[in-house]
């Protein structure tokens, strides 16, 4: 471990593990199991989405024309690119390239912020047109059930947005730890874990985008 010059802070295997390998694979297993619960957390919302798509298909068609597919596509590209930079960040941590890790993490964070900026403009437009959850809805539409669509839209994209926000926080934390030189080929567990989380956030958007913006 000492041959890595970049490694300024050495990681010590926690007392209850026998080896670093056991520690790493346990963390990874824990993270996957956590993602399983995330999947069902969002999954339930998708169930609700499909139930009302089944009950009110015409309303969904009308509603999705109120969303800008261009903005959605732009955000999809932001998130996919950020997944790519994240995975490159993990790779650079694996190969002891501290500087590259920093740059990739920064790029990921920047893309995540861009995502939120686009989201902000989308939300602002919805607020302007009154296309809001039922208690605040004052928009115009053919179908009386339209508020349900926007209730779901704000809950699902809102929760996803909160996950993006948490992701930005986690990446900032990684950048701090990276600047202290904590990560190297022997220890990069946190980068890998945040990476998994970040890809999952991307994964949710991969389904949100076509369902809300394209098909309706």
């Amino acid at each position: 471990m000492s041959k890595q010059k970049e490694s300024l802070v050495q990681h010590h295997v926690a007392h209850h593990f026998d080896t670093a390998e056991q520690e790493f694979s346990t963390a990874k297993l824990g993270m996957w199991v956590f993602l399983v619960q995330e999947l069902l957390f969002f999954g339930a919302l998708f169930v609700a989405f499909f139930v009302f798509k089944y009950l009110y298909p015409e309303m969904y068609v009308e509603a999705h024309h109120h969303l800008s597919w261009k903005m959605g596509a732009l955000n999809t590209i932001f998130l996919i690119t950020s997944s790519f930079t994240m995975v490159m960040g993990v790779r650079s941590a694996q190969t002891n390239q501290r500087r590259a890790t920093k740059n990739y993490l920064f790029a990921t964070m920047l893309l995540a912020c861009s995502f939120l900026v686009v989201k902000y403009f989308e939300y602002a437009a919805k607020f302007h047109h009154g296309l809001l959850p039922p208690h605040f809805f004052f928009g115009e539409g053919v179908h009386q059930t339209l508020p349900i669509f926007f209730g779901l839209y704000f809950v699902m994209t809102g929760l996803h947005g909160i996950h993006v926000l948490i992701g930005i926080g986690l990446i900032a934390w990684l950048m701090y730890r990276n600047s202290r030189g904590e990560f190297n080929s022997e220890f990069y567990t946190p980068v890998e874990m945040v990476g998994l989380y970040w890809h999952f956030v991307d994964l949710v958007w991969i389904f949100l985008f076509p369902l809300f913006y394209l098909v309706g």
Partner: peptide, 25 residues
């Protein structure tokens, strides 16, 4: 195991959707 867990959870999601639709539909 990670693979089994993740793919398995998708199965449970399908159960959720399927049974809910056995009512709704």
């Amino acid at each position: 195991f990670n693979f089994v867990a993740f793919v398995g959870s998708i199965l449970f999601l399908i159960i959720f959707i399927g049974f809910t639709f056995s009512d709704i539909a």
